[in-house]
Design a protein around this nucleic acid. Structure first.
Length: 310
DNA sequence: ACCCAGGCGGGCG
DNA sequence: CGCCCGCATGGG
């Protein structure tokens, strides 16, 4: 009921845009970029038919479809857009979202400090840190706490379907990513029904803050430390979630989110004692990888979860 | 049945 | 401060 209000108002109908092409500066591993627990994968679908991969993701502005030849690395992507996009803005959205302007040569050179991370890079070469919308990223990572990736996707999908504005394209109907106001207007009970559990109060609190006085845009102009302190003023956002938002919502590449996987990896690979606190790990990451620590983190995280034995 | 998941805030020492 | 605990929920 109240959960339907925002979803139904402002339904729009938009025409198919046809396929367009983007050539990447450096080869990208789209699959690894999508499957490494980044916000984009929480609101996208992925499938392969006859050697052609198809990705479909929703944003606050519409829907983007990608198509490309299946394989480890891609040099060319094809896209279609639906909703409030033009060919130009959709192309810009994809370029930014997938980090197509990232100087991978420089990044690999700077983070290849030892055999462990070299192996992670080798195993998942072409993986990008994605650059997502700050609000999308904030909502996704508040949901992520003490949760697993499969269930995070389910919860995000439920919130999109319940609170995201409807978008018609041909005879298919979908919802775009919900605005903070739509989530703020939901009751705690409705948010629990979407599967959010004990996080419902944090989600409501953060959505309310963002739709009132809390200005996510200000963080673009802040440095890492300022942005982190500002984000952590909100109840429901702690050290790890703040780092995730700064890394994947603002592309502050020195952010180094420490979750259970990264903590274990860092302890196993670089700290003989196997028992380190969070601040020790932050210092070590900063010392080893500095401004690109976030890239190192993403490779270590994905490799810890998807080890490749040669 | 038991354990774990891209953690957080509150409370205690 | 740093550490420890409970927390909802669903899948392995």
């Amino acid at each position: 009921m109240s959960s339907r209000t925002h979803a139904e108002e402002g339904t729009t109908t938009l025409k198919d845009s046809g396929w367009n092409r983007i050539d990447t500066k450096f080869p990208i591993n789209v699959k690894a970029s999508l499957e490494s627990g980044q916000p984009l994968s929480f609101h996208s679908t992925y499938n392969i038919t006859n050697g052609i991969a198809r990705v479909c993701y929703v944003t606050r502005n519409g829907v983007i479809e990608l198509s490309y030849r299946e394989g480890r690395l891609q040099d060319t992507l094809f896209f279609r857009h639906h909703g409030k996009y033009t060919k130009k803005t959709a192309s810009e959205e994809i370029t930014k979202r997938f980090g197509l302007e990232d100087d991978m040569e420089d990044i690999y050179k700077k983070i290849s400090t030892d055999k462990h991370i070299k192996k992670a890079i080798d195993s998942h070469y072409g993986l990008r840190v994605t650059h997502n919308d700050p609000w999308e990223t904030t909502l996704c990572f508040v949901i992520s706490q003490f949760n697993n990736i499969k269930r995070i996707k389910g919860i995000v999908r439920n919130l999109i379907n319940s609170y995201g504005m409807e978008l018609e394209s041909g005879n298919t109907l979908t919802h775009i990513f919900p605005e903070p106001e739509a989530i703020a207007d939901a009751s705690i009970g409705d948010l629990v029904k979407a599967g959010t559990g004990f996080r419902a109060k944090y989600i409501k609190n953060v959505a309310t803050a963002v739709s009132n006085n809390f200005d996510l845009d200000k963080i673009h102009g802040m440095d890492y430390q300022e942005g982190k302190e500002y984000l952590m003023e909100m109840e429901g956002i702690g050290d790890k979630v703040a780092d995730c938002i700064l890394l994947m919502g603002y592309k502050k590449l020195n952010a180094f989110p420490i979750d259970v996987w990264i903590k274990r990896s860092m302890e196993d690979l670089y700290m003989k004692n196997r028992k380190a606190n969070i601040s020790e790990i932050h210092s070590l990451a900063d010392e080893k990888w500095g401004g690109y620590a976030g890239y190192a983190q993403q490779y270590l995280f994905h490799h810890a979860r998807n080890p490749v034995y040669q």
